[in-house]
Design a protein around this nucleic acid. Sequence first.
DNA 1: GTCTATACACCGATAGAC
DNA 2: GTCTATCGGTGTATAGAC
Lengths: 201, 201
Amino acid sequence: MPRRDRKAERREATRQEIVEAAWEIARERGLAQLTLREVGERIGMRAPSLYSHYGSKNAIYDAMFEQAWSECERVSLDALRSAPADPRGLVRVVALAYFDFAVADLARYQLMNQRTIPGFEPSPDAYASAVRALDEVIAVFATIGVTDRDDVEIWIAVLSGLVDQQLANDPGGHSRRKLLDRAVDMWADSVGLPPTKEPQK
Amino acid sequence: MPRRDRKAERREATRQEIVEAAWEIARERGLAQLTLREVGERIGMRAPSLYSHYGSKNAIYDAMFEQAWSECERVSLDALRSAPADPRGLVRVVALAYFDFAVADLARYQLMNQRTIPGFEPSPDAYASAVRALDEVIAVFATIGVTDRDDVEIWIAVLSGLVDQQLANDPGGHSRRKLLDRAVDMWADSVGLPPTKEPQK
DNA sequence: GTCTATACACCGATAGAC
DNA sequence: GTCTATCGGTGTATAGAC
């Protein structure tokens, strides 16, 4: 029995190659314009060969979905690590991180949050990664004393509303980014978060 | 020269039939699942015959897009007519009307606000109907003293964020409807709208 | 196991007969 | 206007080579 399963490693590498190529096409041409024939072409395969690695086109979308939400979780945790303890400052930093992440890649955002692919629904496994990211947000809000689920949902609505607006009206730009501070304060006031002590620069 | 152009009337009626059938399919099976063959079948035609009335499948989507935004404008104006003069009450009533309209038909909302159809972009004419509805909102907000464009955009973000949340997490339901009052007050406080005098029942 | 070749059913769209 | 026939495209299934 080998110490390393080289075959499995190679197999996993191929799966990664497929997903990478799929992201490339999605970013260049749009998420829905992805075709198996082109994915195959980019990695030197015929389209039907992809079925040795993924059971269907939607299975590829599924892998992309999970990967996107995992990245999102990582970005959020990174932001959290460098965030101030001040409640408003914390919300601001995490919100900015999410906004920048979302706005940076339209195709990724569509796959994560909009039902833009006709027959696609994420598998339970992939969906779990999205739930995990959301639970993380809920946990963060709990640390600053926001436990009412409705308050959290309103904030998520504000944030995702601004992202949608950005992507719909000025894709590739970041014109709505400057509205985030005002939105944070609006929401923070409504849930009674204490105002930031020292004025931020 | 006939008083009524019967031929043109019949032609317009057929175009309406096509759009009606398209809405039916979109509601039953999903917006993207619409096929010309099925549209034709429902009105007793072969698919290619539709091209005598609409130049492409997207042209049908375009007609649906315009119709949806026109309906939306009508609903908003109706709500406005029965709205109180009190600023917050007015925002509340118009918001509720829009929320109910949006949530009532997922396919329609996707066509209006999300880029869920791969190749589709509304024509300038159809897009104008969407702009008209937005301008109307801006005008209403001006009457209650809200002229800052950023304030308006934040409110639109909040409202559309709640609608998206509703449709994504509980399509067909209206669980987020009760968050609207709180959202209105949150936003109204942030832009300095005077509080409602008599408490609403 | 991995990949290719082939085939199928369906799609939007076009050409041309009537 | 509406039809039939057909084209190039898609996702997908399967048989079989290596």
